[in-house]
Write a protein that binds this DNA or RNA. Sequence first.
DNA 1: TCACAATAGTCGTTATAACGAATATAATCC
DNA 2: GGATTATATTCGTTATAACGACTATTGTGA
Lengths: 160, 160
Amino acid sequence: MNASIQAEIKQTKPFDSLEQEVFLTLLWTADRMQWRLSETLKEHGLSPTQYNALRILRGAGKQGLACSEIAERMITRDPDITRLLDRMGKMGLAQRKRGSQDRRVVVAQITNKGLDLLKQLDPVLHQFLQQLLGEMGAKNLKSLLELLGKTGSLAARATV
Amino acid sequence: MNASIQAEIKQTKPFDSLEQEVFLTLLWTADRMQWRLSETLKEHGLSPTQYNALRILRGAGKQGLACSEIAERMITRDPDITRLLDRMGKMGLAQRKRGSQDRRVVVAQITNKGLDLLKQLDPVLHQFLQQLLGEMGAKNLKSLLELLGKTGSLAARATV
DNA sequence: TCACAATAGTCGTTATAACGAATATAATCC
DNA sequence: GGATTATATTCGTTATAACGACTATTGTGA
């Protein structure tokens, strides 16, 4: 069944264990998907990280969001939100200001330019996802989601 | 079911589509797993990329492998194998030489030091994977593998 | 209220990744 | 067989990521 993936990573030997096979296949699949995403976003001058942050800022609305909150919501962790926002500020997609109550926090907001860019990207991304995963069908996608949920909660636990 | 993942990425709004939910969950899960792996490998002075390359070189045996072959087998794509091997060479884990038939190719081999390191890491990684995924059970893992196989072959296609 | 700890970001530095151009060698095609 | 194209890798450069140390601000407890 997974002969194709095994062929893709040109693994000649069988995997050491089922767990290893799942682990490698999961990382491999995610890496290819992220690559596809970055190809798509590149045409619009964004990296996946920047797109992710922009979506988060749009979701936060006008009141904006603290840097630490942004970090928590990122799909791919980025330990240095400061410079990520620097770059996005330079591109005119986001802006920052000191918090008024707690002057330690820096609140970031999406700009109108950022909103416009996202609006332009929404149908692009929708189509991207349909092309990438639409063939799977709802039933398979739901099963996958359920299994990934179990897996992810294990990966998120601090126990390992 | 996926309430926990949704909580983890602090997504307040529901996802735009099932495809998007699967996509984000997959990337998120893989990112957390890779992070776990890098924490584990860090204690031994390796990055996931280096570990991956080292495993590939071990699999290739004594005759070694061309740089381009290594690139194809990597779980996470790395466009610059040259410098990856530079670093691993500096660490004494790998060595390179020009191919004898085709003098364009550079063949890389794992060193004894590299083999020793991997031997030391094998049980560590086995335990890591058991802790990370062992609870899932064989049935779930096999289902996950099958679904990832379908997904991955879509992501690998050059069509999108 | 004053020291001390905790929190939120920033920034200097080093390491690694990404992008292209460049080099060297091999294969191919008049 | 010489020009041309393809292949394999290297390397210069820029961008981004990772790791810590540092600053500013707030909370806390004697």
